[in-house]
Design a protein around this nucleic acid. Structure first.
Lengths: 218, 218, 218, 218
DNA sequence: CATGAATGAGAGTTCATTCAT
DNA sequence: GATGAATGAACTCTCATTCAT
C-alpha cells in the first residue's frame, strides 16, 4: 500500500498548504489540518507527528515545484535579470496566496526555539553541556539553510549583473552590494506587502526602479 | 492611589516588553506575562484585558520614547540622512532585543483577523454587511496606521535626498523611488536579520552602499 | 462506533439528570457533570458544549419517556380525569426527585437572557434591530414551547370535563376556566412542594377537593 | 455616624432590590451589587457579608412596606376578599418588576443547602451527628417561615370566606380547601406569569373565575 | 468608615496525543 | 493502516474576599 500511502501524504501536504497560507504557521493546530483534510485525528499522526514536520514538507514540495523554469528560457544575462524580477514581482503581488507569512512565522519560531535552548544551556550545568554536545547539533544537515539559499540568490544576481555589464547594457560600481540591495528590497517588498499592504503600482514602481537603475543612460 | 497604579501599569508594560521580545506576539499568553511580572493571575487583568491591548501599549510607549532625538542634532540634509541611516543600522543590529519579531507577528495576526472577518461577512447576508458598515470600522482612528507611518518616513527621506541635492552633495534621478528603495531595503535588512541572521559587516556594507550610492562621484 | 457513542451520551444524560435534580439548573457546572459521570473534562465537551444543551437533552428524554401511559387505560372521561389527577399528584409528591426545580430555574434563566438581549437591543441602533429580526428568532421551531404545552393540557382537561358532563357525572359553569384553575393549582402545588414543602395530606386534600368539586352532588 | 450608616445601608438595599429583580438571586454577585451601587468593593462588605444576607434584608424591607393597607379600607368580608384578589392580581401582573423570581430562586437555593447538609450528615460519623445536635438547629427562630406565612394567608382567606358566607353572599362546601385552592392557583398564576408568560386577560379571567365561583347564584 | 488593589481558587474551553478497535 | 473516543495539560477569565492606606 506504499502507493496509496504516498498519495494520501501528498493530499495532506496540499491541504495543509492551504491551511498554512490562510492561518500562518504558529497558530495552525493539528486539528485545523485534520479538519481541512477531512481525515481522522489518528490518521494524520500516522503521517506527520506535528505541524512543524508537516510545514517543512509543504516547503520542500513548494521548492521542488517552483524551480528552474526561468533559467532555460533566457539567452542573455539582461533577459535573465528581467525574468528574475518579473518572477519576484509576481511573488510579491501574490502574497495573499503565498507561503510568505507562514514562512516568516516559522523562522520566528525557530529563532525562539534556539533562544530558549540557549537559555536553558546557560542555566544547565556546564558539565551536562559538554555531554550533550555530540547529540543534537547534528540534527538537520540535510538541506540548504535559508541563509545559504539567500546567499546563493545574491551570487546568481551578482553574476547576472556582471554578465549584463559585459554585454554592455548595465553599469554598476559594486555588483555584490547591488545584488544584495535588490534582494533586501525584494524582502522588504514582500514583508511590506503582507503587513502594511502595497498596491500593484507601488510594487511595479519599485521593481522598475531597481531594474532601470542599472542601465547605462544615454 | 492612581499614582501607584500608573507605576504598576508601567512596570507591567516594561516586563511585557521583555516577554514579547523573547517570545514574539502570537505565542505569548497572559500567563507568561503574569509570571514575568510575578503578580497574580487576576492582578494582570486589572490592568489589561488581553495580550493584544498590552502589546499595543508596549508599542505606544516604545514610540513615545523613541522619538525626536536625531531630528534636532543635524544641520544639513546630508547630515540628517547620515544620522537616519545610523539609527536604522542600530535598529537592525539590535534585532535580538527589539520588537521587530513581535511586531511582524502582530501584523500577521491582524491580517488573519481581517481575513477571518471578511470570510464571515461573505457567509453572512449582504444586508447585514451594509448595516454594520457604519459602526465598527470607526473603532481605532486614534493613531497612525503602519502604512501611514511608512509613507511618512518615505516622504521625509525623499525631502532629505532633495535637500542633499540642493546642498550639492547628492545626485539622484528619482528621489521618491530612491527613498522607497532605502526603506524597503531597511525592511529587508530587518527581517533578514531576525530570520536568516546577518553579520554586522553585511549590514554595514549594505547601508554604506545605500548611502555612498547617492553621492556625486568625482 | 456510533453505537457506543450513543450509549455514552445516554449515560451522560442520565447522570446529568441526577445532578440537575440535586443542584437545579443555574448552579450546575460542566465540572459537576464531569465528576458525576467520572469522565474526563474534555470527554464531556465531546458530547455537549454546555449545561444548557445538556439540560435540554435531559428534558427531551424525560418527555419522550413520560408519554402516553394513562391515555390508553381509561374508558370514560371521568376515569381519565381521575388518572390525570393521580399522575399529577405523584409528580407533586416526587418533587425531591423531579426536574421541577431545574426546570423553573431554566425558565428564569431564559427570561433573563431575553431581558438582557432586549436591553442590548434598546441600546443598539434601531436599524440593526429591524435587520436581525429575520434571523435569530427562527432558531428553535423544533419543539413545543412551554406555553403551548400548558395550553394543550388545559385543552385536554377542558375536554375531559365536558366529556364528564356529557357522561352525566360532572357539573361545571365554565369548563375552560375550571381547567385552567386545575392547572394553575397544580403548578401552585408543585412550586409550593419544592419551596415551602407540603405534606402528602395537604397535596391529597387539595387534589381531592379539585376533583370532588366537579361532581354533581346528590 | 450611625445615621449616615443607616442611610447608606438602606441605599444599598434599594439598589440591590433592582439587581435581584433584574437578575434573580442565584446569579447575582457581590460585584453586581457593587457596580449597581457605585460603591467600593470593600465598602459593600462593611454592610453585608454576602448576597444571601443582603437578599434577606431586601425581603424584610419589602414585607415591612407592603403590609396592612387593604386591611383597613374594607368593611365586609366580601369586600376584603375582593381587595385581596385585586392585590394578588396586581402582583401577578407586575411580575417583571417583582421579587417573585429571585424569591423562588432563593427557596431553591435553601432547599439545596438543606439537602447538601443532610447528605453530609449522612456521610459523617453518627457520633459527630449527635454531637452537633445542640448547635446549629437554633439558627433562625427570628421570623416567620415561608410555610407559616402561606398558612396564615390560607387562614385569613378561610375566615373571609366564612365571613362572606355569614354575610349571605358566598357559598362553599369546604372553606379551608377553597382557601387553599385560591392560594395555590395564585402561586400557579405567579409562576406561570414569569415562566410561560400570561396575558392580562388570562390572569383576570382566572381570578374572576375564582371569585365569582364562590357567589351564590340566583 | 471607605477605598480599590491584589490575591487565588475555580469554572470554562481547546487541543495534542494516545490507544482500543 | 485508519478511526475517533478519551484523556489531561494548559490557558483564559471572573469573582469572593482580604488588607494596606
Amino acid at each position: 500500500m506504499g502507493d496509496k500511502s504516498i498519495r494520501k501524504k501528498q493530499y495532506i501536504i496540499e491541504k495543509a498548504r492551504e491551511v498554512f497560507i490562510e492561518k500562518g504557521f504558529l497558530t495552525v493546530t493539528m486539528k485545523d489540518i485534520v479538519e481541512a483534510c477531512e481525515i481522522s485525528r489518528g490518521g494524520l499522526y500516522l503521517y506527520f507527528p506535528d505541524t512543524e514536520t508537516l510545514f517543512l514538507e509543504v516547503l520542500r514540495k513548494e521548492r521542488e515545484e517552483g524551480n528552474s523554469e526561468e533559467l532555460e528560457k533566457a539567452d542573455t544575462a539582461v533577459e535573465m535579470l528581467s525574468l528574475f524580477l518579473r518572477e519576484q514581482k509576481k511573488e510579491v503581488l501574490q502574497n495573499e496566496k503565498s507561503l510568505i507569512v507562514p514562512l516568516y512565522e516559522y523562522y520566528f519560531y525557530l529563532r525562539q526555539k534556539q533562544h530558549a535552548a540557549a537559555k536553558e544551556q546557560t542555566q544547565a550545568q556546564a558539565i551536562a553541556a559538554a555531554d550533550r554536545e555530540g547529540k543534537e547539533p547534528a540534527a538537520k544537515p540535510e538541506e540548504l539553510t535559508e541563509k545559504e539559499r539567500f546567499e546563493m540568490s545574491v551570487k546568481v544576481l551578482e553574476k547576472l549583473i556582471i554578465g549584463g555589464m559585459r554585454e554592455g547594457y548595465l553599469a554598476c560600481d559594486d555588483p555584490g552590494e547591488e545584488a544584495k540591495n535588490i534582494m533586501f528590497a525584494m524582502e522588504g517588498l514582500k514583508i511590506c506587502a503582507v503587513t502594511i499592504g502595497l498596491s500593484e503600482e507601488e510594487v511595479t514602481g519599485q521593481i522598475n526602479y531597481l531594474y532601470s537603475h542599472l542601465f547605462i543612460r544615454d
